[in-house]
């Protein structure tokens, strides 16, 4: 195989994995902007997305497209319930306590998932077969990679439209900037926070579902993806819309190029090193300009 073909393969792989990280990072950002907390239950949203998809598509033989949307709605509902229950009624509103609360919720969700589905890794059928496609540059992908790209781009465009063009989206951004002023403008802050949890749930579910046919899924697959997505969010600038995409893609590329060109044994260390370097030079992340351009 030509060297240029290898490079092309590394880049394609990096972009695909990066796209997933980006979606996860977006999920973290949306809740962070609405509430100021880091929602660790985001990891479980990913696992649940994959497992819902598995249950519907494999166990109950539901049409894949329908299964996709039901799973998304299901996890969004779980996200909403988390907010309506424990988060909203927490006695303390301290950020650090709410963050610990999300860690606890994450454990409960994972434990429940373990009881429901067991610990086995399970496969989910690819959305449209597994016949490899050879790209002009020499890289090979499977159709699922195209799905991952297409769905990621679509999700990003829809989010952009929502936050920039709809009054509800603008209200969510307004709430992120200044809760008190938002309340004085007649925006129900509680409802905006509720939406943010539902959105993050849906985003996590999408990430979990589109990767499941490649990596298989289990009750705890979301932990690794969640942490990588979190790293991507920090890399891009926590809370920043464009930063999440950039952070995800950079992290994906770093891992893939690091493994391919430098050393597969140290690829995570390489990615981690770059992350630290960026944070050292720009503590707020690549796109981090304080409050500006938050989602």
């Amino acid at each position: 195989m030509e060297f240029s073909q290898q490079i092309a393969q590394y880049i394609i792989t990096g972009l695909t994995i990066g796209a997933i990280y980006a979606i996860v990072a977006m999920g973290f950002n949306i809740i962070h902007n609405a509430t100021g907390i880091v929602n660790f239950a985001q990891c479980e949203f990913i696992s649940l997305g994959g497992m819902f998809m598995y249950s519907l598509a494999v166990l109950f033989k539901v049409n894949l497209i329908i299964a996709f949307f039901i799973s998304m709605a299901g996890v969004a509902l779980i996200g909403a319930l988390i907010e309506m229950g424990p988060i909203r009624h927490a006695r303390s509103k301290e950020i650090i306590i709410l963050i610990f609360l999300t860690i606890g919720l994450s454990e409960i969700l994972r434990g429940t998932a373990q009881v429901v589905w067991g610990t086995d890794n399970v496969g989910v059928p690819a959305f449209s077969g597994e016949t490899p496609i050879h790209l002009p540059g020499g890289a090979a992908i499977v159709p699922q990679h195209i799905w991952i790209f297409a769905i990621t781009v679509m999700v990003m465009l829809m989010l952009r439209y929502f936050f920039k063009k709809t009054l509800m989206g603008k209200a969510m951004r307004a709430t992120a900037v200044n809760r008190r002023a938002a309340a004085l403008a007649g925006i129900s802050v509680n409802r905006m926070v509720l939406f943010s949890f539902a959105f993050s749930g849906a985003l996590g579910a999408v990430a979990g579902m589109i990767i499941a046919p490649i990596s298989s899924t289990s009750y705890d697959t979301g932990i690794m993806l969640g942490l990588k997505g979190f790293a991507a969010a920090i890399l891009g600038g926590y809370g920043n819309f464009a930063g999440a995409i950039l952070g995800g893609i950079i992290l994906g590329l770093l891992e893939s190029l690091g493994a391919g060109l430098i050393s597969s044994q140290y690829k995570d260390a390489i990615a981690f090193f770059v992350l630290l370097l960026v944070l050292f030079l720009k503590p707020r992340g690549i796109m981090g300009y304080g409050e500006s351009e938050r989602v």
Binding site: M1, Q6, Q9, Y10, T13, T16, I17, I20, I211, I214, S215, M224, L225, E255, S256, L257, A259, G260, S264, K267
Partner: peptide, 10 residues
């Protein structure tokens, strides 16, 4: 890890 194409390409 969820993807080993880089290593396998090498």
């Amino acid at each position: 890890d969820i993807d080993m194409t880089a290593q396998l390409t090498r």
